[in-house]
Protein backbone atom coordinates (compact mmCIF):
# COMPACT_ATOMS: atom_id res chain seq x y z
CA UNK A 1 0.00 0.00 0.00
CA UNK A 2 2.89 2.36 0.69
CA UNK A 3 4.05 1.72 -2.87
CA UNK A 4 0.55 2.51 -4.14
CA UNK A 5 0.50 5.80 -2.25
CA UNK A 6 3.99 6.71 -3.45
CA UNK A 7 3.10 5.89 -7.05
CA UNK A 8 -0.09 7.88 -6.71
CA UNK A 9 1.79 10.91 -5.48
CA UNK A 10 4.37 10.60 -8.25
CA UNK A 11 1.67 10.14 -10.87
CA UNK A 12 -0.22 13.13 -9.58
CA UNK A 13 2.93 15.20 -9.57
CA UNK A 14 3.79 14.24 -13.14
CA UNK A 15 0.23 14.77 -14.23
CA UNK A 16 0.25 18.21 -12.67
CA UNK A 17 3.21 19.11 -14.82
CA UNK A 18 1.63 17.75 -17.97
CA UNK A 19 -1.62 19.49 -17.24
CA UNK A 20 -0.04 22.83 -16.36
CA UNK A 21 -1.16 22.85 -12.74
CA UNK A 22 -3.64 25.59 -12.02
CA UNK A 23 -2.54 26.15 -8.48
CA UNK A 24 -0.80 24.90 -5.41
CA UNK A 25 -1.67 25.87 -1.89
CA UNK A 26 -0.90 25.00 1.66
CA UNK A 27 -3.25 24.56 4.55
CA UNK A 28 -3.50 23.60 8.17
CA UNK A 29 -6.34 22.13 10.13
CA UNK A 30 -7.34 21.02 13.61
CA UNK A 31 -10.32 19.27 15.06
CA UNK A 32 -11.62 16.21 16.80
CA UNK A 33 -11.39 12.51 16.02
CA UNK A 34 -14.08 10.28 17.52
CA UNK A 35 -13.79 6.48 17.44
CA UNK A 36 -16.80 4.68 16.01
CA UNK A 37 -17.79 1.40 17.68
CA UNK A 38 -14.47 1.18 19.50
CA UNK A 39 -14.73 0.48 23.20
CA UNK A 40 -10.99 0.56 23.88
CA UNK A 41 -10.24 4.16 22.89
CA UNK A 42 -11.92 7.54 23.26
CA UNK A 43 -12.11 10.72 21.22
CA UNK A 44 -9.19 13.07 20.97
CA UNK A 45 -7.79 16.09 19.24
CA UNK A 46 -6.18 16.07 15.84
CA UNK A 47 -4.28 18.48 13.64
CA UNK A 48 -2.35 18.42 10.41
CA UNK A 49 -1.36 19.99 7.15
CA UNK A 50 -2.65 19.69 3.60
CA UNK A 51 -1.20 20.69 0.26
CA UNK A 52 -4.02 21.19 -2.24
CA UNK A 53 -2.99 20.94 -5.87
CA UNK A 54 -5.68 22.11 -8.26
CA UNK A 55 -5.01 20.25 -11.51
CA UNK A 56 -8.06 21.06 -13.58
CA UNK A 57 -11.45 22.59 -12.92
CA UNK A 58 -13.46 20.46 -10.50
CA UNK A 59 -10.52 18.32 -9.45
CA UNK A 60 -8.02 18.87 -6.66
CA UNK A 61 -5.59 16.40 -5.17
CA UNK A 62 -4.37 16.94 -1.67
CA UNK A 63 -1.48 15.18 0.04
CA UNK A 64 -1.93 15.41 3.79
CA UNK A 65 -0.33 14.62 7.10
CA UNK A 66 -2.34 14.33 10.29
CA UNK A 67 -1.64 13.59 13.91
CA UNK A 68 -4.14 12.72 16.62
CA UNK A 69 -3.92 12.05 20.34
CA UNK A 70 -6.84 9.78 21.07
CA UNK A 71 -8.22 9.63 24.57
CA UNK A 72 -7.99 6.83 27.10
CA UNK A 73 -10.80 4.35 27.51
CA UNK A 74 -12.22 3.39 30.87
CA UNK A 75 -13.85 0.06 31.56
CA UNK A 76 -15.58 -0.53 34.86
CA UNK A 77 -15.47 -4.12 36.07
CA UNK A 78 -16.98 -5.12 39.41
CA UNK A 79 -17.00 -1.50 40.50
CA UNK A 80 -13.35 -0.88 39.67
CA UNK A 81 -12.32 1.46 36.84
CA UNK A 82 -9.58 0.24 34.52
CA UNK A 83 -8.10 2.63 31.98
CA UNK A 84 -6.32 1.98 28.71
CA UNK A 85 -4.32 4.78 27.17
CA UNK A 86 -5.44 6.09 23.80
CA UNK A 87 -3.55 5.81 20.55
CA UNK A 88 -0.92 8.20 19.32
CA UNK A 89 -1.99 8.37 15.68
CA UNK A 90 0.05 9.53 12.70
CA UNK A 91 -1.44 9.48 9.22
CA UNK A 92 -0.42 10.49 5.75
CA UNK A 93 -1.92 10.04 2.33
CA UNK A 94 -3.66 11.82 -0.48
CA UNK A 95 -7.22 13.03 -0.95
CA UNK A 96 -9.11 13.65 -4.16
CA UNK A 97 -11.60 16.53 -4.03
CA UNK A 98 -14.35 17.47 -6.41
CA UNK A 99 -14.23 21.25 -6.12
CA UNK A 100 -16.72 23.58 -7.77
CA UNK A 101 -14.92 26.83 -7.12
CA UNK A 102 -16.45 30.12 -6.00
CA UNK A 103 -16.49 31.91 -2.66
CA UNK A 104 -18.71 29.27 -1.02
CA UNK A 105 -18.54 25.65 -2.03
CA UNK A 106 -19.41 22.20 -0.85
CA UNK A 107 -17.03 19.53 -1.97
CA UNK A 108 -17.03 15.75 -1.53
CA UNK A 109 -13.68 14.09 -1.12
CA UNK A 110 -12.11 10.67 -0.71
CA UNK A 111 -8.61 9.52 0.03
CA UNK A 112 -6.22 6.71 0.68
CA UNK A 113 -3.28 6.66 3.05
CA UNK A 114 -1.32 5.00 5.79
CA UNK A 115 -2.07 5.31 9.51
CA UNK A 116 0.13 4.28 12.39
CA UNK A 117 -1.43 3.62 15.78
CA UNK A 118 0.80 3.45 18.81
CA UNK A 119 0.28 2.92 22.53
CA UNK A 120 1.90 0.83 25.25
CA UNK A 121 2.01 -2.75 24.02
CA UNK A 122 0.85 -1.85 20.52
CA UNK A 123 2.59 -0.27 17.53
CA UNK A 124 1.43 -0.96 14.00
CA UNK A 125 0.48 0.77 10.77
CA UNK A 126 -2.43 0.17 8.45
CA UNK A 127 -3.90 1.15 5.11
CA UNK A 128 -6.53 3.84 5.51
CA UNK A 129 -9.46 5.00 3.43
CA UNK A 130 -11.45 8.11 4.12
CA UNK A 131 -14.32 10.00 2.58
CA UNK A 132 -16.39 12.97 3.57
CA UNK A 133 -17.83 16.35 2.77
CA UNK A 134 -16.24 19.76 3.08
CA UNK A 135 -17.47 23.33 3.12
CA UNK A 136 -15.10 25.97 1.81
CA UNK A 137 -15.60 29.68 2.32
CA UNK A 138 -13.25 32.13 0.68
CA UNK A 139 -13.48 35.54 2.37
CA UNK A 140 -10.50 36.88 0.46
CA UNK A 141 -8.58 36.03 -2.68
CA UNK A 142 -6.25 33.04 -2.24
CA UNK A 143 -7.56 32.40 1.26
CA UNK A 144 -10.15 29.74 2.09
CA UNK A 145 -11.62 28.51 5.35
CA UNK A 146 -12.61 24.86 5.52
CA UNK A 147 -15.03 22.82 7.60
CA UNK A 148 -14.88 19.10 6.98
CA UNK A 149 -16.52 15.95 8.21
CA UNK A 150 -15.14 12.57 7.26
CA UNK A 151 -15.22 8.89 8.06
CA UNK A 152 -11.76 7.41 8.36
CA UNK A 153 -11.47 3.64 8.03
CA UNK A 154 -8.26 2.02 9.24
CA UNK A 155 -8.15 -1.47 7.77
CA UNK A 156 -6.84 -4.09 10.18
CA UNK A 157 -6.97 -7.50 8.56
CA UNK A 158 -10.56 -8.57 8.07
CA UNK A 159 -11.89 -5.84 10.34
CA UNK A 160 -11.25 -2.15 10.72
CA UNK A 161 -11.13 0.73 13.13
CA UNK A 162 -13.29 3.66 12.15
CA UNK A 163 -13.11 7.28 13.21
CA UNK A 164 -15.42 10.20 12.60
CA UNK A 165 -13.34 13.32 12.14
CA UNK A 166 -14.51 16.93 12.20
CA UNK A 167 -11.94 19.59 11.38
CA UNK A 168 -11.71 23.29 10.69
CA UNK A 169 -8.83 24.73 8.76
CA UNK A 170 -7.55 27.30 6.39
CA UNK A 171 -5.64 27.16 3.13
CA UNK A 172 -3.70 29.71 1.16
CA UNK A 173 -3.01 29.54 -2.56
CA UNK A 174 0.75 29.93 -2.88
CA UNK A 175 0.71 30.35 -6.62
CA UNK A 176 -1.49 29.61 -9.56
CA UNK A 177 -1.07 29.26 -13.26
CA UNK A 178 -3.57 30.03 -15.95
Amino acid sequence: MRRLIALTLVALGLSAGVAHARGVGIGAFAGMSAPVLQEDVAKGNMFGIRVPVNLVPLFTVEPYYASAALGEATETVAGVDYTREGFDEKAYGVNALLTMGGPVQFYPFAGVGQTSLKRTGFDDSFTTFNFGLGLGISPAPKFTLHLRGELQTVVDGEASRKFGNVTVGASYALFSMP
Binding site: V36, L37, V41, G111, T127, T153, E158, A159, S160
Partner: peptide, 16 residues
Protein backbone atom coordinates in the same frame (compact mmCIF):
# COMPACT_ATOMS: atom_id res chain seq x y z
CA UNK B 1 -10.29 3.26 -3.33
CA UNK B 2 -13.52 1.48 -4.09
CA UNK B 3 -11.66 -1.59 -5.28
CA UNK B 4 -9.61 -1.65 -2.09
CA UNK B 5 -12.70 -1.17 0.03
CA UNK B 6 -14.42 -4.11 -1.61
CA UNK B 7 -11.29 -6.24 -1.47
CA UNK B 8 -10.82 -5.64 2.22
CA UNK B 9 -14.11 -7.34 2.97
CA UNK B 10 -16.19 -6.65 6.02
CA UNK B 11 -14.51 -3.51 7.21
CA UNK B 12 -17.47 -1.18 7.12
CA UNK B 13 -19.60 -2.93 9.73
CA UNK B 14 -17.12 -3.82 12.43
CA UNK B 15 -16.07 -2.70 15.86
CA UNK B 16 -13.80 -3.32 18.83
Amino acid sequence: MLAALIASGCMLVSGQ
